[in-house]
Design a protein around this nucleic acid. Sequence first.
DNA 1: ATCAAATTTAAAATTAAACTCAATAAAAAT
DNA 2: ATTTTTATTGAGTTTAATTTTAAATTTGAT
Lengths: 139, 139
Amino acid sequence: MNKEDFRNFISSKGLKITKKRDEIFDEVLNTKGHFDPEELYMRLKQKGSKVSRASIYRTIPLLVEIGLIEEVERVDKHAHYERVSADSHHDHMICMKCGKVIEFFSPTLEMLQDEICQRENFHKIRHSLEIFGLCKQCQ
Amino acid sequence: MNKEDFRNFISSKGLKITKKRDEIFDEVLNTKGHFDPEELYMRLKQKGSKVSRASIYRTIPLLVEIGLIEEVERVDKHAHYERVSADSHHDHMICMKCGKVIEFFSPTLEMLQDEICQRENFHKIRHSLEIFGLCKQCQ
DNA sequence: ATCAAATTTAAAATTAAACTCAATAAAAAT
DNA sequence: ATTTTTATTGAGTTTAATTTTAAATTTGAT
């Protein structure tokens, strides 16, 4: 996934390649870990970009559609996103006390899900597993 | 879980047993499947109840706390709830095309999660697994 | 370069959910 | 049973996130 892919995607949808979309795409590409629209907006602001929140909110669904990011947990009442790396899907444990998010991955869990979907004739595209509880420190 | 349990729970919290709380509790008890606060409000309205949305929003967290309901998927941007039946926890497959929700349960999956949490010293309280994809009909 | 169509911004609108507060109802005290 | 205390209620206000509007600007095709 690079800027070329993004531009091709935008064009192929009949949309226009603009400075603002590029700026947002670049910033998301450089972002590690979780973020929410407001954080993304502030980070761009600090770098001198003049994008508005509206553009952020309008571009995020495009980034989800192209598969660069995905919506992860909604701990607070707003959406959080995260870069999708084809090779590093993981799920989340969320501490209900301190809000800490622990990432984990279990191949067995993945396979098990595939089996369950096969049984139901369901074509799995993606999944989201969130385990809520208390982290080591908060118990 | 019956009205007695609910009343005891309310009392034990130092709260008061009121007509409105009873009405909301009864309605939720009689509700099968998913619902959101607005649906619950409309259903009560239709039955002649004079509850306000405020009471709905104030009572739902109590029903979650007592374990009668739990928050399930957020297909739209607002919360959806569902009755918890001690003996029938399940997860969801959600069709991205037609919106159909398929419920499933896998003891193996549950155990696997417990194991993963033990490894991480995470005290699991509840979890939510949503598999998105295409149902048999929509593939 | 021209121009229609898409995109932008700032501001207003919308949405779900929480809060405020005077009136009311429930529990406790008398 | 009556009074007193305290919690709950509904209507409307508020908040925070997100979406839409409308006017100005930018893009891409000609």
